[in-house]
């Protein structure tokens, strides 16, 4: 049975069909796991845990990567 999961993703409220893991979310977003890092509710999600980290409504996620900077 599918239930919607509502997340704050990089500051934007977004809803996804659940259940959804971090790995699933990155795949839906079209992001390469190799080049990003994910923080969930201000805690790092280690890359090795993406598949088993299930997201819950109300989670705040930050997905970041490297850009040019001084």
């Amino acid at each position: 049975m599918q239930t919607a999961v509502t997340l704050t993703l990089n500051g934007e409220i977004r809803a996804y069909d659940g259940p959804i893991s971090v790995a699933g979310l990155l795949s839906v977003l079209g992001l390469e796991t190799r080049k990003v890092a994910v923080e969930r509710n201000e805690e790092i999600v280690p890359r090795s845990h993406y598949a088993e980290t299930w997201l819950e409504t109300g989670d705040a996620l930050e997905i970041v990567h490297f850009i040019g900077g001084g």
């Binding site: 990089n10 890092a37 997905i63 490297f66």
Partner: peptide
């Protein structure tokens, strides 16, 4: 080289990357 850490632009996930 120094690099910054910033939110991924979710509307353009295929944008060229620094790497």
């Amino acid at each position: 080289v120094t690099v910054a850490v910033r939110r991924v632009n979710l509307s353009d996930p295929k944008a060229p990357m620094l790497q």
